[in-house]
């Protein structure tokens, strides 16, 4: 469905490529449309340019070829939320101050920002931990704070770079469910980088499978699942079948020799 119906798209990548100063061609010829309210997973092996793609979309780096269009207007600094692989919290600030940061940077008064941050913390089930410092929180809780911070500006687009990769499986499953619930409720657009087939099928409505060297999109797959998804889906035959299919596509992508 490359290209596809672009009028409903939040963003469209056209022939996007990125060559780093070191000469590494990280991604090349990326064509990708992301629909408004979509949940897209970027799935691929390590080093295939997933993070690079995300940074290009967040405008933390500029593409060296191609362009990124925003049919409904370019996003402002508060329209994008970014969740890194590590929680990336300021250790000297409380959970509340960490979550309030994007608002404070935008010049929102302290009181108002704190109220909004507390609300956002409550949404990720961290009520009561407002005054906790990051080092006193568990890994999973820190990740929640990071998600609360990304959501505090009510972004249209949430970019997540392997956010749960460092967590244990039980915590990861819980945060997967929480993320789905947040998404069902607010319907922002999500681009979720992962190298886990299982995670991508469980979360995403669409999966872009990437191939390495240079990074490019090998195939796009849709996921069919009951809404809302839950633990029942995780153990269904449907889920298993789709995981197998995605896994096969990923294997294909890695076997394809570079052009």
């Amino acid at each position: 469905m490359q290209g596809g119906d672009e009028t409903g798209s939040l963003l469209v990548l056209r022939g996007v490529g990125k060559r780093y100063a070191t000469g590494t061609l990280a991604v090349q010829g990326i064509d990708l449309a992301v629909a408004q309210g979509d949940f897209l997973a970027l799935l691929g092996p390590s080093g295939c340019g997933k993070s690079t793609l995300l940074r290009l979309i967040a405008r933390l780096a500029a593409p060296s070829e191609g362009r990124i269009d925003w049919p409904h207007g370019r996003p402002g600094p508060r329209d994008i939320g970014f969740v890194f692989q590590e929680p990336t919290l300021m250790p000297w600030a409380t959970a509340l101050a960490n979550v309030a940061l994007p608002l404070r940077l935008a010049g929102m008064p302290r009181r108002e920002a704190a109220a909004r941050a507390a609300e956002s913390l409550a949404r990720v089930e961290l009520r009561g931990f407002e005054q906790a410092y990051p080092r006193t929180l568990s890994g999973g809780m820190r990740m929640r704070v990071s998600i609360a911070r990304a959501l505090v500006t009510r972004p249209r687009l949430l970019l997540m770079d392997e956010p749960f990769a460092a967590l244990d499986e039980i915590t990861r499953h819980r945060l997967n469910n929480d993320l789905l619930a947040l998404w069902e409720a607010a319907r922002f657009t999500v681009i979720f980088v992962t190298h886990s087939v299982f995670e991508s099928v469980y979360l995403a409505r669409r999966i872009a499978v990437m191939a390495p060297r240079p990074g490019r999109i090998h195939a796009e797959l849709g996921v069919t699942a009951p809404a809302p998804r839950g633990e029942a889906f995780r153990t269904s035959a449907e889920y298993a079948a789709q995981c197998r299919a995605v896994s096969a596509t990923l294997g294909e992508a890695m076997a394809v020799s570079p052009a």
Binding site: R59, L60, R78, F82, F84, T88, M90, L101, L105, A106
Partner: peptide, 13 residues
């Protein structure tokens, strides 16, 4: 921290 620096950039600090 580089990621924190990116975060600040993302929010137009």
């Amino acid at each position: 921290d580089h990621n924190l620096l990116d975060l600040f950039r993302l929010y137009g600090a």
